[in-house]
Simulated assay, not measured.
Amino acid sequence: MHAQNIIDTLKLTASASGKYTNMILDRTNNHLIRLSVMTEPFYWHQHPNSDETFMVLEGVIALDLLNTTLELSQGQMYTVPMGTVHRTRPVTERSVNITFELADMETVRIDF
């Protein structure tokens, strides 16, 4: 691996500001790897054409599904199946997570 390919997630999360920061870290085959820093909930939504995998780097996130809530802490990972209505929200003051998803993933907002 060459030095210019190294992605420093600690530096990126330290520079994040605002209520929600989401950035593409890399592309692998036909997937994106994203870094998200959250201080408040993301809206309810679903992805009709892609699973979405979350891996927590810092803090705790709640993964709200229609009938249950999962809490993921540092080092834990969970995959939301394609078409599942969900939202994420930080349980701690802020949460940092990596998501893995199809590059052309559709996001459909759900308003209750």
Rank of each mutant, 00 (worst) to 15 (best):
R87Q: 06
P81V: 03
G75M: 01
M77Q: 10
D51F: 00
V108H: 06
Q74Y: 10
L32V: 11
T79W: 00
H31T: 11
S50Q: 09
F54I: 09
V85C: 04
Q46D: 15
V91P: 05
I98P: 00
T99S: 14
H31S: 12
W44Q: 11
L72M: 08
V60L: 04
T39V: 09
R94P: 10
D51T: 02
P90D: 00
P41C: 09
T88L: 13
L70I: 12
I61E: 01
M82H: 07
Q74N: 13
L66K: 15
G59A: 02
T79Y: 00
T39I: 09
N30S: 14
T28P: 06
P48F: 01
L35Q: 05
S95Y: 11
P90L: 01
D104R: 08
V85P: 10
S73R: 08
T88I: 15
P81Y: 00
L70E: 06
S36T: 07
V91C: 03
P48R: 00
L57P: 01
T92K: 04
T53V: 00
I24G: 11
M82C: 07
W44I: 11
I61R: 00
M55P: 11
T69E: 10
L65F: 01
A103C: 09
T84P: 00
M55N: 12
T107A: 11
I24K: 15
V37G: 06
T88V: 15
V56K: 08
T92Y: 03
S50A: 07
Y78C: 06
E71I: 12
V91Q: 05
V108C: 05
T84M: 02
E52I: 07
Q76C: 03
E40L: 10
N97I: 12
L102E: 06
V37D: 09
I24R: 15
H31A: 14
V37Y: 04
F100K: 08
D64W: 03
D64Y: 04
L66N: 12
I24C: 13
L57C: 02
N29P: 06
L63M: 03
L102A: 10
L72W: 05
M105A: 15
N49M: 07
N49G: 06
L66H: 08
V96K: 10
S73W: 00
R94C: 10
I98N: 04
R34I: 07
T68W: 13
E58C: 10
M55H: 14
R94D: 01
L102R: 14
M77A: 11
V85F: 06
M82N: 11
R94S: 14
D64Q: 07
